[in-house]
Design a protein around this nucleic acid. Structure first.
Length: 451
RNA sequence: GUCCCCAUCGUCUAGCCUGGUCUAGGACAAAAGCUUUUCAAGCUUUCGACACCGGUUCAAAUCCGGUUGGGGACGCCA
């Protein structure tokens, strides 16, 4: 049975690279009918934070990457110690003072000299000369000479295990069959294989994923754009577009497919078809994907997602709002949104009477006096018994025909008067949603009173 | 510096393993057009790549070597 894991360290939020690693592990597990295990690498007690842990778990769930088992390394220190002691007793490892190791000097501490408070001796693996071969599922054979590998610290002087050691002990104890992780771990792999050998443990299969690079080149970092999954969530990207986007980084479902959900991906996923080349994050494509999903998303769900923020802005009352109204707005705008949060600036006039007005738009379309036209249109709208799109449009078309002017000569000014913007949904849909009263009120502002 | 990895349009990629079907396919972006009431969406079209040099072969994007370029790792961090 295939068992894979994602092993984040709670010293930061879940970032793009980690999420993609988790996704590929998850896809591999599901496609093989195996298990996806989560292991929290919280051995660095100083840097590990509970908020990070919570954020990571939340983000994984949000992306739909559920796990079958979860472990915490901080609860397993005694196990690592035990394995290290075993190597010690077999003469494969030795003890050393921190100072000794750092200075590289043989033995300077005088007999009986006390170690720093709370500090014991580290346990270190002897690295013997030789070769290490890796058979990587993605890259093929990789060979290292152990001369480039220093003796490996297993247990630090404070008693905590090092990353590589805890990793090997756990990967083995948790019966992991495949280790799928980022390229940046390639140089850890020979070190870990040495540990498997020393401990006499079975070596799992390895697959090293290509890294995700920043647009400017080099590693993704805070300075080079958003890295945390939470940032994308906050920006209004949907989990499914992020998942879709991430799976396309280094892997292709074939047949020129671009849009597919995680369940389809499970069916098509083949780890051998992951490519070796590092990929650069293309925000434009993410945005395109998000728009694709947004316009096909169930409007009811989008309303649900919008309500908290709308309430926070005081645009609606939290417990008492017109859901159907919101629904009609969502339907009107969803195909025009890159991220869900675009809704707020595009729909502000639907909620506020004192909405922001683009001065350039006014300059361009409302500098001429349109009192007569606005008044006529307003009066005719008033008379409409059925205030629906076809009737509104009919009314409007009739008016411009009578006035012998082009439709757009009036459409644009009216849009600006009603929304404060030059861009937006079709005018008649917009008027319909806005309602008779508000439409008239906003037109009236631009009608000069004859005295 | 040492070691390791990688190399197809600006970007993500298909093809590469199993040479010929590749005058290299798709998507994003860009440009143009259609539609039209602006924007978005949609549809159509255009632009655009096998890093370089050598070798193997009747034949190389595909196999081999080198060069260059990019990336990663060298912690008692993970």
């Amino acid at each position: 049975m295939v068992r894979v894991r994602f092993a984040p360290s709670p010293t930061g939020n879940l970032h793009i690279g980690g999420a993609r690693t988790a996704l590929f592990n998850w896809l591999y597990a599901k496609s093989q009918g195996g298990k996806f295990i989560l292991r929290i690498e919280d051995t660095d007690t100083l840097r590990s934070k509970k908020e990070y842990l919570e954020e990571i778990l939340f983000s994984l769930k949000w992306l739909g990457l559920d796990w079958d088992e979860i472990y915490y390394q901080s609860e397993r220190f005694n196990i690592y110690k035990e394995y290290a002691e075993k190597l010690l007793s077999q003469g494969k490892a030795y003890k050393a003072d921190k100072l000794t190791a750092e200075t590289g000097e043989e033995q300077v501490s005088a007999p009986g000299e006390a170690h720093p408070k709370g500090e014991g001796q580290a346990i270190i693996l002897k690295v013997l000369p030789g070769k290490v071969q890796i058979e990587d599922m993605i890259r093929g054979g990789i060979e290292f000479d152990t001369s480039v590998i220093k003796d490996q610290v297993l247990i630090k002087s404070d008693g905590s295990p090092t990353y590589n050691f805890a990793c090997v002990v756990d990967d083995s104890l948790m019966n992991l069959t495949h280790i799928i992780r980022g390229d940046d771990h390639i140089s850890n792999t020979p070190k870990q294989i040495l540990l498997y050998r020393a401990l006499g443990l079975a070596i799992p299969k390895f697959a090293h994923l290509p890294l995700i690079l920043a647009k400017e080149g080099g590693r993704l970092s805070k300075r080079k754009g958003a890295t945390a999954i939470s940032e994308y969530r906050d920006m209004g990207y949907l989990a499914k577009s992020l998942v879709n986007f991430l799976m396309l980084l280094g892997w292709s479902p074939g047949e020129n497919r671009e849009i597919l959900d995680i369940n389809e991906a499970v069916k098509l996923f083949d780890i051998h078809h992951i490519n070796k080349t590092a990929a650069i994050l293309d925000m434009d494509k993410l945005s395109w994907l998000n728009n694709q999903y947004l316009k096909n998303e169930d409007p009811q769900k989008l309303v649900d997602a919008l309500v908290p923020e709308l309430a926070a802005r005081n645009w609606i009352a939290k417990d008492n709002f017109d859901r159907n109204y919101l629904l009609s707005l969502v339907k009107l705008l969803q195909a025009r949104l890159t991220v869900l949060s675009d809704f707020f600036e595009r729909a502000d006039f639907f909620f506020l009477d004192d909405f922001p007005v683009d001065p350039k738009a006014v300059e361009k379309f409302l500098s001429r006096d349109l009192s007569r036209e606005f008044l006529l249109f307003s009066e005719r709208l008033e008379k409409l018994e059925k205030f629906e799109v076809p009737e509104i449009e009919e009314t409007f078309r009739q008016l411009v025909a009578e006035l012998a002017i082009e439709a757009k000569a009036l459409i644009h000014p009216i849009r600006v008067a009603l929304t404060g913007k030059t861009v937006g949904p079709g005018l008649f849909e917009l008027i319909c949603c806005l309602g008779k009263i508000r439409t008239k009120k906003r037109l009236a502002k631009w009608i000069k009173k004859e005295s």
